[in-house]
Nucleic acid binder design. Structure first.
Lengths: 337, 337
DNA sequence: GTGAAAGCGCTAACAG
DNA sequence: CTGTTAGCGCTTTCAC
């Protein structure tokens, strides 16, 4: 493992010059630069990031904190962030806060703060003011994905608008009895996502004068199984069978599609079904949905951090960046009979 | 951001003593230790991992290299590894090699080697001898998950045995015409996993004197859609309809179940279907399968690394640690009519 | 354009 | 059990 001094020796220059030549900071004559680069290549020299970080105070490493890894949305965000970071020469240190509060405190106190990271991306994580402040005090930029964080730059999708769009698609097809499968209280963790989507649904109905019917709501846990159970409940109601279902996530919507089949209802002839996400399975199931783009969200988060880490790049004005979404119509929605 | 010297001052001791008291290395009187801890807590002191790493040569950080993040198996392995590492006070730096070879070289040269990590976990990655050697030369322990790596400790499942078990389950129910949905050549990247599973299937058949019928094989890409297509192919063959299908992954098996339904075949009355994985969706679909435990694999990989990183712990003997798997019988398999 | 030298913040002998 | 003293390997003024 050659050090900078061996490179310096081989190139016949000082270590300072090697550092300048290799990092691009400061001026070095082209000839010298080339000799240094050749020497470095010959020795297979790579800078020690620790020594470098210690000297500069920058780690070229960002921490990504996520409550899950194993779910489509979160995995995609991390994947997108990883790619973007790699492109900028940064590493990504992963903190999975799936565990309870102990794990959480432990991560904050012993890991993030160790000066290991230059910045933090928090995915769907409601940080306490304390946590935010300790990061800000440390001068570490943070960007949140998925909801408003006090005083922090965030990327978030307008859940009310997304749900409204989905519901309006169903309305525009002529559906009047539109059921909703949404989260129950227990899922309020993620920035009221379930509530916002429910509000969007209700807003759309009310806008066209359809009263919200509590019997057309069923709670589920954002899994396929949950959506399946909820849909059976809805479809089994003998006096109030909906002609369409809007589920707050694609996984629940797919569960609902399977429930429909199991009950002898065909989609979309007997029942239209609509989700949110454009999950990786949705195309296969022919599910109509409102797409969001998690990988791109991860990438965007990185761009925002880079802007803050390297001033001189354009400065984003507003604290919150709205995320794009699109209606994707497939074969699970149609006019009612 | 207080430094070690401020803690030392407040506690009325030397920085060396602070270091010892806080790290647990070396002896410190209980009284002193407490004073130091109190001082550290009061100041909110956290060690600078860079300075510490530079001085010790250890980073308390391990690199995890994976080709995907977004798939059940990989996400679970990483999740398991992350938990275990956190428990040992280590961080996890993620390198997602989904991109092409450029990304790969870049990761190896510019990231892993920067002395950023103490060890590497390579998931389903066939490292070149060069890559392995550069890691070994650096004295970095590596553990591979998913296949034999030359000269590297690995964790791997016996794919032949797993597939054989799955097939034998079907045989024991009385099936004679058992089709197989497996990977095509393009998937040979992952340590010949598809081939091994196919071999296990063929071995099981031959053991009971059933000839392997190439017409009962269909290739797919390990996705649900792929399994669906392959199964339709199999079920549509008018003169050779299998009574059972063994798919090399649960996702493909679920695709096959959906194909069966769409063709009016009921599972398991008309056709039995079997997978491998115990994917998170398998219980919901009632899929019989052979379970493997990716999260535990991640945890085990960490344990092996810890053994190598902290000699004095028990030393594993063999290079390869076999992974456990279990038959899980649900409602997708039954005796043939 | 390049070199000398002073740290970055901590740990690990070595004494005592 | 604790303090002193060298570094760990790089970056960065400050001179030249």
């Amino acid at each position: 493992m050659p050090g900078i001094n061996e490179v310096a020796e081989l190139a016949g220059v000082s270590t300072a010059t090697v550092s300048r030549a290799l990092s691009g900071n400061g001026h070095v004559s082209p000839a010298t630069r080339e000799r240094v680069q050749a020497a470095a290549a010959e020795l297979g020299y790579v800078v020690s990031s620790n020594a470098s970080s210690l000297a500069t105070g920058r780690t070229k490493n960002v921490g990504v904190v996520t409550p899950f890894l194993n779910r489509w949305f979160y995995g995609s965000v991390v994947e997108g962030a990883e790619q973007a970071l790699l492109g900028h020469g940064y590493d990504l240190t992963l903190y999975n806060l799936s565990g309870g509060n102990n794990e959480r405190r432990s991560v904050f106190e012993h890991f993030l703060l160790r000066k290991r990271v230059d910045a933090v991306i928090a995915i769907s994580l409601e940080l306490t003011p304390n946590e935010v402040n300790s990061l800000i005090d440390l001068g570490k930029p943070i960007v949140g994905i998925g909801g408003p964080l006090p005083g922090v730059r965030t990327l978030s999708i307008d859940d009310v608008a997304v749900a409204r769009l989905a519901t309006e698609h169903l309305l525009s097809l002529g559906h009047l009895a539109i059921a909703h499968i949404g989260g129950n209280k227990a899922f309020e963790v993620d920035f009221h996502l379930p509530t916002n989507r429910r509000v969007g649904y209700e807003t759309a109905l009310e806008a066209v004068g359809i009263p919200v019917d509590p019997e057309l709501f069923a709670a589920a846990d954002f899994t396929m199984q949950g959506g399946y159970n909820a849909a059976k409940q809805l479809f089994g109601n003998p006096r109030k069978r909906p002609t369409a279902v809007f589920a707050a996530s694609d996984e629940m919507a797919i569960g609902a599609m399977l429930a429909a089949r199991d009950m002898g209802l065909s989609v979309p002839q007997d029942i239209s079904i609509m989700g949110i996400d454009d999950h990786e399975l949705s195309e296969f199931f022919g599910l109509s949905t409102v797409a969001q783009y998690p990988a791109e969200q991860g990438r965007k988060a990185v761009e925002i951090l880079m802007d803050q880490l390297h001033p001189g790049r354009r400065e984003k004005g507003s604290l919150n960046t709205p995320l794009s979404f699109d209606l994707v119509v497939r074969s699970s929605t149609a006019r009612p009979h």
